Simulated scan of single mutants.
Amino acid sequence: MTSQSTVESTAAKLRRSTHVRLAWMLAALAVVAVLMILSTMIGSRNVGLDDVLAAYGGSAAGFDQAAVAKRIPRTLLVVCVGAALGISGAVMQGVTRNPLADPGILGVNTGASLAVVIGIAFFGLSTADGYIWFAIVGATLTAVFVYAVGSLGRQGATPLKLALAGAATAAALSSFISAVVLPRGDIADLARDWQIGGVGGVTFDSVTLILPFLIVGLLISVYSAPGLNALALGDELAAGLGQHVGTTRMVSAAGAVLLCGAATAVAGPIGFVGLVIPHACRLLIGIDHRWLIPFSAVTGAALLTASDILGRIIARPAELDVGILTALIGAPFFIAIVRRQKVRSL
C-alpha cells in the first residue's frame, strides 16, 4: 500500500496543466530577454536602448555602441553559464534524490577548480580552451568519489551522507588548491581571480567554447528526463517499470558533470545556482523533469544575468564578481532547505 500510495502521489505531482507550464516558460524567456538588454545597457557607463539595438544589429560607430558590443559576449556567456548550472543542479538532485545536491555543495566545482589550478601551475594553462578539459576531468573524478563515499554503509547514498561527503571532499580539495597556489607566486593572481568566479573581460571565443558542451549536456539531460522521473519513485519501482537504474544514473550524471565542468572552466566555480534554481522551478511547474530541465536552464540564465547586473550596480564604477552575488543569494536559501524537516529525499 505504501509503494502504491508513493506512486500515486508522485504521478499526481507530475500531472500539471501544460498551459500553466507553457505560460511560466514563456514568462521566463521574456525575463531573460529583458535582462539581456539591461545587461548590455548597464555598466560603468550606461547607454541608451537605441545604441543597444544598433550594436545588436552589428553597428559600432559611436562610443556607446562600441561599449555595448563589448558587453554582448559577456551577456551571452552569462546566459550560457547560468543555463548550464541550472540544468546541472536539477539533474544532480534527480540522480541522487537529494534536495541538497548542487555542483558546489557536492564538491564537483571544487574538483574542477583543483584540476584547472593544477593545469595552470604545472602545464602552463592560461586560457579557457585549455581549462575546459581539465575541469571536466576534475569534475568527473570528484563526482565519482563523492558518490562512492556517500554510498558506503547500510542505507547507501542518503541525502545527508552525500551532503557530508561532498562538504568534506570540497574542504579537502580546497586545501589542495591552496597547497598548489601558495608556493607559486607567479600564478597566485591568475588562480585567485579565476577561483572567485566571474565573467568579466570575455570574448566571443569563450561563448563558442562552452556552447557545444552546453548543447550536448542539454541533449543528454533531456534524453534522461523520463528516467529521472522513474527514479523519483525509488530504485525498486523504477526497475519494475523497466528502467536500468544504474545506466540512467550514469548517463544523467555524465550530462550534469559535462555542463558543470564546462561552466566552471570559462567562468570559475560559481556556486548555489544549481541549488536554488531547481527548487524554485519545482514550485512553479512541478517535478516532471521533461519540463524541469529546460525551465531550469532558462531560469538559471535569468538568475545569473540578474546577479551580474546587480554586481555592476552595487560597486559602480567597479563591479562585484558574479560568484560573490550568487553566494550571497544562495547561502540563506541553503540554510532554509537544511532547516526543513523533510530533507531526506525529494
Score class of each variant (00 low, 15 high):
M1S: 15
S3K: 15
A11I: 11
T18I: 15
V31Y: 10
V32S: 09
V34H: 11
I42F: 12
S44C: 11
V47N: 02
A55E: 00
G57V: 07
G58F: 08
A67F: 15
A69W: 11
R74M: 09
L77M: 09
L77R: 08
A84D: 00
V95F: 08
R97Q: 07
P99L: 07
A101S: 01
D102K: 10
P103I: 02
L106I: 04
L106A: 03
T110V: 11
S113E: 01
V116A: 04
V117I: 11
F123W: 12
G124E: 00
F134C: 13
A135T: 02
V137D: 02
V137C: 09
A143R: 05
A143I: 03
F145N: 05
A148V: 09
A148M: 13
G150P: 01
L162N: 04
A163R: 11
A163W: 07
L164T: 00
A167R: 14
A167K: 14
L173S: 02
S175M: 10
S175R: 09
S178K: 14
A179S: 14
A179T: 11
V181M: 09
P183I: 07
D189I: 11
L190I: 10
A191M: 08
F204W: 15
T208P: 12
I215G: 12
V222E: 04
P226S: 05
L241N: 03
G246L: 11
T247R: 15
M250F: 15
S252G: 06
A254W: 07
G255R: 10
G261L: 05
A262D: 00
I270D: 01
V273I: 11
V276C: 04
I277W: 04
I277Y: 06
H279N: 06
A280Y: 12
R282Q: 07
I293Y: 13
P294Q: 05
A297G: 05
T299R: 14
A302C: 09
A302R: 10
T305C: 15
D321G: 15
G323S: 05
L325D: 00
A327Q: 03
A336N: 13
V338S: 11
R344V: 12
R344T: 12
